[in-house]
Design a protein around this nucleic acid. Structure first.
Lengths: 189, 189
DNA sequence: GCTAGCATGTAATCGGTTACATGATTTT
DNA sequence: AAAATCATGTAACCGATTACATGCTAGC
């Protein structure tokens, strides 16, 4: 069970609708997990049926009605159990890496292009995460926040995402440059 | 189709049996993809049926017989097509991050322990990848290898893996320290 | 008038994980 | 004598992706 606990963790910071959660789990701002809207709606239904979250209907005049969810005590207990169990290792699985692995046996140009594109999206995500980190710190400097701030968790996962995106950007840029120097849009000899 | 192309890319460097591939795709040394033995045996069967790889039986006296596979021209063409198609973005999905996200609402001690454990495995993987990088360079210095070496692909994915593992180690160590300073094995106030 | 955003889902499929199964040889 | 290594699979299940579906409001 995977998404389940990610949703519980996301709901710790307040009430969210499926739609709001979907936005958070989508786009680069998903620091610690990723999921599509359909998955989230399904998972919210199951979590509510299991009593781990509870929802309340919010009637809106000008917008469709929505349901806002929060974690119940049972839900918190479930998170607690999950966090105490040993985590399974995580793996890299990335199409782009497969392409780079093969790059000197196939046409290099499209791979170089994709590396450049990935570098750009990683840089953009890094920018967003920098802003998120600043917002989470809320004016304090980092040392102060780490010593006295509430909710270190989201800040730490944000730092992780930030480091990851910067790393991705740097590696993509460097790799693209190296490959350009070797193959310059052409093919392997 | 995902694993398919990872297997093709892995087979570019020579002939491998399912068993040998499984070792490469398992353990930390899977620079660019991860898969379990069962998946690999199934995928090899399909790839052979589709004519993208070909295998030859090797009869062994003291060991069970095995089949060694290599990529066919059709297989290479398929990789080519795959590499030219735009890559889908990759996402972080890590149990440990979910736990850290929730850390100040639940018992911190087990999370800190798991961060420390993850730091250790990441450090170990980094060590293995450093050795792999040195082996791929084969005595030359990096600039020389990047300019004149064959098979840049595996080296670049290795560098990526190395940077990722170091990053993971550093983040885990730092986060564990920060959390220890705050909660020191105890619970959130 | 058209596009983007709010809000929520169902159904089919695919890819990955878990569990189970076998059997010989080499190393501890 | 026990454990690890070589070598190859089958079957059931679960989680994630893709495709499809609906309908109203705000802004360009």
């Amino acid at each position: 069970m995977a998404l389940r606990h990610a949703v519980l963790a996301a709901l710790l910071d307040g009430e969210y609708s499926g739609y709001q959660l979907a936005k958070a789990f989508d786009a680069g701002v998903a620091n610690f997990w990723h999921a599509l809207p359909q998955q989230l709606y399904a998972e919210l239904t199951k979590l509510e049926a299991d009593g781990l979250i509870a929802g309340r209907q919010v009637i809106q005049e000008t917008r469709p009605n929505k349901r806002l969810f929060h974690v119940t005590e049972e839900g918190l207990a479930e998170l607690e159990r999950f966090a105490a169990a040993t985590a399974k290792p995580s793996f890299i699985r990335d199409d782009l890496l497969v392409k780079v692995q093969a790059v000197d046996r196939i046409e290099a140009a499209p791979v170089i292009e994709q590396l450049a594109a990935r570098a750009r999206t990683a840089a953009a995500k890094a920018g967003i995460l920098e802003q998120l980190a600043a917002r989470l710190r809320g004016g304090r400097d980092e040392a102060d926040f780490l010593a006295h701030g509430t909710r270190l968790g989201p800040y730490l996962t944000c730092l992780r995402g930030l480091a990851f995106e910067r790393e991705t950007r740097d590696w993509c840029e460097r790799s693209a440059e190296i490959l350009r120097a070797r193959y310059d849009g052409g093919r392997q000899p």
